[in-house]
Design a protein around this nucleic acid. Structure first.
Lengths: 229, 229
DNA sequence: CCTTTTTTAATTGTCGACAATTTAATGAGG
DNA sequence: CCTCATTAAATTGTCGACAATTAAAAAAGG
């Protein structure tokens, strides 16, 4: 089960291909956070000219995975507690809104699909105890579908095509798994129930809490990491 | 009083320059909504090669001012009631959040400045009765400052560097001015008062209403335009 | 030995040309 | 006359090279 973003569906051009490869490398830490990016270096490494590479860099900047300074170059972002808080503040609002809209817009068929998917993930989760990769994939799948269910193109673009790469980066690079998994499943269930009941207000509230809990979970990791340094 | 976005501060490279020119042309309708974009054509028109032009196009896509299809080209976005609603749904959430954060984060000095600015705008408004350009500039200035006051970099980037160009495009192309102006000033006053009182919750609520009213105002214009066609 | 200036190297931004793909035009067939 | 296939034109994507700017290294001065 690959974690594939909506954008990644179709890698048409060679600029797309290199974008996805670099994106993954940054998220997974193969290109380390905070390091400087060399255009000629990356171009050689991924066997493309600088033209498509620069286009990819522009799109990486949009996801906040790199920061560019004119005439000076680009750096991979550095993860920080402040950045994490800022990111999750936004997620709470946006995904709360997504839930409210999804409660109005999602057709019953999509809701059923999402329910089935939750059950399926729960089973594979039991089998593959402790493999955080599958947990993350399942969680992302859940959130993606609700966001898409909002049918708001700007909301979808912001979350799925921009912020979620950073969310994954925070999770992956601080090894998100741990004891919160089973609780997350229950929370997901409650959210989808609220959406099925067309109770947007409740779905909104539950999603905000859900993300808030998730944030605190990562925050504690960032804290312990800080203490041991 | 030019309407200058935070990004526009410094047009370092020639790609920046052409970006701002095209951005303005699209927002003001000099490049008509829905029209196809010709890379060679624009390159000649703005006296640059296609390399910086394409970089500018990539950044225009990020503000949702154009839509690109791989190997097919780019089109200027078309304005629609659905798009407007989706855009303002997001603004309500995001600027509501901005107010809540600003109530915590803005130093008193910034709040005072904003108050003075409001008064100044009110005066120049009385003098230049009916000039919608100054109204818009004043309104944008107000919203920008609150967003910046939130100190949340992702929020700032999304609103000021991405969505606000589209907001302006909707406003400019349907001639926003009209009878809402004086009421907007009162609403602005109430919001800044709530922030000064460090009442984030109230500021949040007031901003949501303020934007909701603004949305309905534009919606009615889009409606009448539809009826006369 | 440290600071400042000059020189060098490297990197970024821009250009023009070519290759690949798509769109438009042309022609053949029904 | 319309539809489909083929060809031609135009547009997009990619490449390598040059110009401009910035960062690093070396040299001069205190």
């Amino acid at each position: 089960m690959q974690i594939v973003s909506p954008l990644e569906r179709s890698a048409i051009t060679s600029s797309d291909r290199v974008l996805f490869e670099i994106q993954r490398a940054i998220v997974e830490g193969n290109i380390v956070a905070g390091s400087k990016i060399s255009e000629p270096g990356l171009a050689r490494r991924f066997n493309v000219s600088r033209a498509p590479l620069r286009e990819a860099l522009a799109r990486l900047e949009r996801c906040h995975l790199i920061e560019r300074i004119p005439n000076a170059g680009a750096r991979v972002v550095t993860l920080s507690p402040e950045g994490l808080v800022a990111l999750y503040q936004l997620r709470e609002e946006l995904e709360g809104l997504a839930c409210r809209l999804a409660a109005e817009q999602m057709p019953d068929s999509e809701i059923d699909e999402l329910r089935q998917l939750l059950d399926k993930h729960l089973e594979t989760q039991r089998v593959r105890e402790g493999e955080s990769y599958y947990q993350e994939a399942g969680d992302l799948d859940f959130h993606y579908r609700i966001i898409l269910g909002s049918k708001n193109q700007y909301l979808i673009n912001m979350l799925c095509d921009q912020l979620y790469y950073l969310v994954r980066m925070y999770r992956v690079q601080m090894g998100m798994n741990g004891p919160r998994v089973s609780r997350a499943f229950d929370e997901h269930k409650a959210i989808i129930n609220a959406i099925a009941n067309r109770d947007g207000e409740l779905a909104d509230l539950l999603m905000r809490r859900h993300i808030g809990a998730s944030r605190k979970n990562i925050e504690s990791r960032l804290q312990t990491e800080k203490e041991t340094s």
